[in-house]
């Protein structure tokens, strides 16, 4: 049995995402020229991809497990504002802010997870609620504490080097974090039993519980991971740009979901891969940024993204169908 035949590669969840990525890179190479793949060009989309990608992986895992988390849209500004208010406004040490940012992510993630597990309310609605609740809380508290919706922060050099600076003047250090998150996730999702649990959860929650999987714990852990990833990205953005805004982050909800779906994750759960999500994120970022390298009006990019999303979903359906109907040939 050969594992490297074309057929086997095409049946993997990331097959569509990989072909899609190649297609958009080729498209923008043709219409945008080689600048697009020169270091500065690569940085433009890689930076966008890293910011989305760190959040897209845990959100994608949640989607594989059959849940959705849109509260990330307000967790990003929450992360930014917590670090800016604690270390910028109050001038507390950075490590306290970092703990607070991740702690807040853990709290909101736990609330999301508990509400989804304990009630029969769909996670879309639960996280829609926390999305607005957190956004309101961040806005209210920021104005109450600092009197403004935009707070400056000047992080010490060490923390800037770790969380928010441009390597070589163009590449955000967040790219390295993204690579690390991807590698760790690939290992845990595809090579350990925990990954198996996530897929089982998305396949059939009841059977998964009967098989002895701690479904409640897995679900809450995934919600905590997605909330923490969003507040972490928010924190890094504040450190990078030396300031935090209350309103940044809502566009991430759609961008992340598009990246995950283009990456081959099935909305109903049970199918997908981390590598696919990475490909999907790159694809989205390339389309999002590539338009600047072409002669096209910027306004057309949403059209391209929309068509791409639909094409991706259709293509993923085809590939999934192939995977399902696969049977080894009679020997």
């Amino acid at each position: 049995m050969t594992n490297l035949s074309i057929g086997n590669l095409l049946r993997r969840p990331e097959a569509g995402a990989f072909l899609g990525m190649l297609a958009v890179i080729l498209f923008f190479l043709v219409f945008g020229g080689v600048n697009f793949l020169k270091p500065a060009g690569i940085a433009s989309w890689l930076n966008v991809a890293a910011n989305i990608g760190i959040i897209a992986i845990p959100v994608g895992l949640l989607m594989i497990a059959g849940e959705l988390d849109i509260s990330i849209g307000s967790m990003i500004p929450a992360g930014s504002m917590i670090v800016a208010i604690l270390s910028g406004h109050y001038e507390l040490p950075m490590w306290i802010s970092i703990l607070a940012v991740l702690g807040f992510g853990a709290i909101i993630g736990t609330i999301n997870g508990l509400l989804v597990v304990r009630t029969a309310v769909p996670s879309l609605i639960v996280t829609l609620g926390t999305l607005f609740a957190v956004a309101g809380m961040v806005l209210g508290l920021s104005v109450l504490i600092t009197g403004t919706t935009s707070v400056a922060i000047k992080a010490p050099a060490l923390y800037k080097a770790i969380f928010g600076q441009f390597i070589g003047g163009t590449y955000q250090v967040l790219i390295l974090w993204w690579v690390a998150v991807s590698v760790v996730s690939v290992f845990y999702v595809h090579y350990t039993k925990y990954g198996n649990w996530i897929f089982a959860l998305g396949g059939d929650r009841e059977s998964a519980r009967n098989a002895g999987i701690p479904t409640t714990r897995v679900t809450i852990t995934l919600f905590i991971l997605s909330a923490c990833s969003a507040s972490f990205v928010g924190m890094c953005q504040a450190i990078l740009f030396n300031s935090a805004q209350v309103s940044a982050g809502m566009s991430y909800i759609f961008n992340v979901i598009i990246s995950v779906v283009v990456g081959g994750v099935v909305l109903t759960g049970g199918f997908g891969s981390v590598v696919g999500i990475v490909f999907g994120t790159i694809t989205f970022a390339v389309v999002n940024q590539g338009i600047y390298f072409t002669g096209f009006d910027r306004n057309w990019s949403s059209l391209i993204i929309g068509v791409m999303l639909l094409a991706a979903v259709l293509m993923n359906n085809t590939f999934r169908h192939m995977a399902l109907n696969y049977a080894p040939k009679k020997k």
Partner: peptide
């Protein structure tokens, strides 16, 4: 059958009781 349509035969057979090899945090399925 109470099984998971999009999982492989091997994986779904052992859901919740996965055989592993390796050590500590690097235990792999």
């Amino acid at each position: 059958g109470g099984t998971f349509p999009l999982m492989s035969i091997g994986r779904s057979f052992f859901v919740g009781a996965e055989p592993t090899k390796g050590w500590g945090p690097f235990k792999i399925y």
